[in-house]
Amino acid sequence: MNTKTKLLAVALTAFALFMAVQSNAQSVQKGKLRFGIGADGLLPVGNFSKSANFGLGITPRLQYGIANNVALTFTTGFYHFFPKDQLYTDGTTSYKYKWDMDLIPVKAGIKAFVTSNIYVSAEAGIGFQVDNGGGDSKFMASGGAGYATKHWDFGVRYENFAGNGYRNELIGLRVAYGFGL
């Protein structure tokens, strides 16, 4: 992401959080815990789209209300990406192979409601790669928006994860069912 895009993303997030703090929405109860389990559709973008067709994920999320319209979040789960066929040439022979990637995200974030049902969110954390022996970890950051009711949460997000010289980007769609604890 270039510098102008990062600055625009930060400015929009700050504006949305400011608006959320100013609103009188009662979307999150202060001091209350909520738990939700989501199914994610993951669409690779940028260079990542050259090696992966799409991904699926499952993401449990714990949410704690710090104000009546702002919550802290903790999200984990599992992402699986379905690879495209890749061609590798060693100079004399060409080989087809499939790159594989499974990731366990561990992220903390904030969710701020701008109306009683519409929210903006931001998360950051670490993704642990578990395929092919694992061992690789990636810094993860995301920003998104969504619509939540008493039990359902529909969200869209841009997510970036980078490590060991690689940067992958995706657009994620999450549908979750949640309840109070």
Rank of each mutant, 00 (worst) to 15 (best):
N47C: 01
V106W: 03
E159W: 11
Y158N: 04
K32D: 07
L33I: 06
G172M: 10
Y158H: 05
G127K: 09
N24Y: 13
G55N: 05
F113E: 00
K30I: 04
G38A: 12
G165V: 09
K6N: 13
S142V: 04
Q63E: 14
N117G: 04
V28E: 10
D136V: 13
A145Y: 02
I110M: 12
K32E: 15
Q26D: 08
G155D: 13
V156T: 15
T5F: 08
G163V: 01
D131T: 15
G135W: 14
I66K: 03
T76H: 07
L8A: 14
V45D: 12
R34K: 11
G41E: 08
D131R: 15
N53K: 12
R34L: 11
G109T: 03
A148M: 04
W152I: 09
Q22P: 08
K150R: 14
T93S: 11
V70G: 01
I58A: 03
R157H: 15
K96F: 07
L7N: 11
Q26A: 13
I171L: 06
Q22W: 04
V10E: 12
S121N: 14
A141R: 12
S121F: 15
Q26I: 02
A20C: 04
V130E: 09
G180L: 13
L173I: 02
G31L: 00
F18K: 09
G146N: 13
K50I: 06
S49C: 10
E169S: 07
E169M: 10
G65T: 01
E159D: 01
K4E: 14
D131C: 11
A67G: 00
N69F: 04
N160C: 03
N47I: 00
L43P: 09
G57S: 02
L181Q: 08
R167A: 10
G172E: 10
V10I: 14
L42R: 03
V45K: 03
F48V: 04
F48Q: 04
I104L: 11
S94R: 10
F81A: 05
G144K: 09
